[in-house]
């Protein structure tokens, strides 16, 4: 049976990490084996008592002491309340939930495309893949330099990774525009074995289409979709994508799954809809 009661965790520390974003250091009071097995790209439900629960991904998965971290951007009343909390506050935790990034990246050429806060669900994967992937390339886009998140992680990656940054509004002399615009330059003649993408939905879809054109099979392009989530158990209905619930079947889908789901469901985009309103 599903347990919808959160377990307690402690807010141990937090620091500003990008525009309106904070990086929270959390500790599970009673970590269990399942917590330690959390995979990059999975998520947990964070409860701020009195304000509800919301899904966040692990930047760093729980260690033996139950310590882990998560990046949170202030967007609504729950995150507003979270930002106001004192160090030492008790929060609620349910997790790990959903499906993470594919596991079989060893020896592969991996391309990571991130946009905005979409870098957070990829952070754990980047750290894992740098050790076992044959080649790892990362491109990260943000609206402007101030909007970039995970400053400490990026500083590390910049030193020893094939890592690029671009901004919609860049400082003079810096790379600008959408990450998609730089893919050809980044890849040269090579075709990656796996593309992992997380960011605003239009960016993910544009990246997927671009890679598809470049010859990456749709099953090797992975997207992490953002949806409103409450139960984390495929019941409350909010995170639907066609016949699938992102909280249990996702949030990571390969592009072929995504296309099949939306096509079978006859889903159409808001942009298409507005043309007919």
């Amino acid at each position: 049976m599903i347990d919808s009661t959160p377990r307690p965790m402690i807010l141990e520390d937090a620091y500003a990490d990008g525009e309106d974003a904070r990086h929270f250091q959390l500790r599970l009071v009673d970590p269990q084996a399942t917590d330690l097995a959390a995979q990059p790209g999975q998520f947990f439900m964070l409860a701020v008592p009195g304000h509800g629960e919301a899904p966040f991904t692990y930047v760093r998965a729980p260690d033996a002491e139950g310590r882990f971290s998560a990046l949170v951007r202030r967007t609504g009343q729950l995150t507003e309340a979270l930002f106001e909390l004192q160090i030492g506050s008790v929060l609620g935790y349910r997790g790990p939930l959903g499906r993470g990034w594919p596991h079989d990246l060893t020896g592969r050429h991996v391309l990571v495309i991130a946009g905005g806060c979409g870098l957070a669900p990829l952070a754990g994967l980047i750290d894992a893949a740098r050790d076992n992937a044959a080649r790892l390339q990362v491109i990260y886009g943000a609206r402007h330099p101030g909007a970039q998140v995970l400053a400490r992680e990026r500083a590390r990656w910049r030193l020893d990774l094939d890592y690029l940054e671009t901004c919609d509004v860049a400082s003079p002399g810096e790379r600008s525009g959408s990450p998609v615009a730089h893919l050809d330059e980044l890849l040269g003649q090579n075709i990656p074995d796996a593309v992992l993408c997380c960011g605003p939905e239009p960016l993910m879809l544009a990246s997927a289409e671009h890679c598809l054109k470049r010859g990456v099979p749709a099953v090797h392009i992975w997207l992490s979709l953002e949806r409103r989530m409450h139960c984390g158990a495929g019941l409350c209905g909010h995170c639907h994508i066609g016949a699938s619930y992102a909280c249990v079947d996702g949030p990571t889908y390969n592009y072929e799954q995504y296309l099949a789901l939306t096509r079978a469901a006859g889903l159409y985009s808001t942009a298409q809809a507005i043309r007919h309103c």
Binding site: A54, T75, G76, L78, T79, P200, E201, E226, R227, R228, G237, H238, C239, H240, I241, A265, G266, L267, Y268, T270, A273, I274, H276, C277
Partner: peptide, 20 residues
């Protein structure tokens, strides 16, 4: 129903919701 905190809404129009 599907509107996210960022105000992005995968089912922003009534037609999309009726369809689903």
């Amino acid at each position: 129903f599907q509107k996210e905190a960022s105000s992005h809404n995968p089912a922003a129009t009534a037609g999309q919701r009726v369809q689903r």
